[in-house]
Simulated scan of single mutants.
Amino acid sequence: MLYYQIIKGIIMEKFSLIIILFAALITPLITARFHIQRMPTAISEILMGIVIGKTGLNIARPDTSVQYIANLGVIILIFLGGMEIDFSLLEPKKDKTIYSPLGTSFTGFMTILFMSILLSGVLYLTGIFTDFVLAVILFSTIALGVIISLLKEVGLLQTNYGQTILLTSAFGEFIPLVALTIYSAVQQRHYISVLGLPVIFIIAIILLHRFNRIYVFFDKIDKATTQLDIRLAFFLIFTLVTFAEQIGAESILGAFLAGAVMKLLKPKPDTEDKLSSIGYGFFIPVFFITTGVNLNLRTLFTNWDAVLLIPIFLMAFILSKAIVYFVFRKRFGRRYAAGASIVTATTITLVLPILQVGRNLKLISMAQSGAITLAAIITCLVCPILFNKILKTEE
């Protein structure tokens, strides 16, 4: 029996990538078959990972190669998040009568940050969650990628309302990323890394300046067998990720800056499509499914302290964004303000790498990480549905 278990474990490790890729293939087919396409793809992939992983059938046991692909997946996911930022929204409007979403979105995020600090203080003082700073970073994050997809589906991405939510979400991804990098460096006592943090931004600016002139030249010499724009994108990713790691920063910050640099180079629409195809076609599904595979809910539900965190963090994710209502109400009215406060509570994209950093630094346990992940998954299931209902009511 023991030998059988050993042989089974070896086989499962060897075929884990095939199992995960097959799961990635059939997940959208299953959601289409049962008419649940409204569920964010990331959530359906995590749920599929739970089914085939430690919690469910336990037929997928990722080895180092699968984990490496999953790590690349989160890097490319954050890179594509950086590419989604519309930098024209940050430009001051010459005509003062034209609405600019910058002021509203920045004020909105600052209220989220204030509420996150308040809620984290309550959890710290009550002893429910003792890492105050990590809680602030978690509560202030917003799932930029999920929200962009949702705004595209409902046709709001190009409206003033959609742009304001988009920019608020961008703040909710970039600022927590920087905060996580600084906090991680302090926890590891790499204080020089904090001083070296501007270096990664300087490198990003140098890369932007260097490639800004020759990027136009790419169109003249590019061909199907060279794909220079894709090669440049991966060069930017690995350059900034490598430098970020060398100065003690988080790799995902380098990936985000690489996406921002690529966006500022103004790539062709088909470049973004090709990069999205590579990311969402292979690397990113492996990351989300592997996250579900590694999530052991059986162990989680035997730890009642961790189980208690699920409703607490779920309420905190929602309450930290509820205050956005008062910022959006002045500009868009009550219903759309309520929709903004609900949709910005959607959080999963950055929560997963934050929790991974927390586990690596031994700031949180695996059970706590699983509980917080489950709370984030619930926000992605509930908040988009409520947002769509509010919009339908308004219509």
Rank of each mutant, 00 (worst) to 15 (best):
A306G: 09
I237L: 15
A179Y: 04
I26L: 10
F288W: 08
S105C: 03
T346E: 02
A249R: 06
S193T: 10
V133Y: 11
L295G: 00
A258S: 15
L134G: 06
V343G: 00
G121D: 07
A233R: 06
G339N: 07
P28C: 09
I390T: 12
L314T: 03
K223C: 11
Y4H: 12
I85L: 14
T27Y: 02
K266C: 04
C383E: 14
V178H: 06
L253H: 08
S116D: 09
A367P: 00
T379R: 09
L80W: 02
I192M: 14
H190V: 01
I205P: 00
P92M: 05
T64P: 00
Y4Q: 12
S369R: 00
T104E: 02
L17Q: 09
I52W: 03
I202R: 03
I318E: 01
Q187L: 14
G73P: 09
S193I: 10
T168W: 01
K220H: 11
R189N: 15
S16G: 07
S320M: 05
E173I: 09
K330T: 12
A233F: 07
K274Y: 09
F22D: 00
H209W: 09
I142A: 09
G145T: 11
T41V: 10
V146I: 15
P92T: 03
G103Q: 09
L180P: 10
A60I: 06
I237N: 03
F235W: 05
G82L: 11
S365F: 01
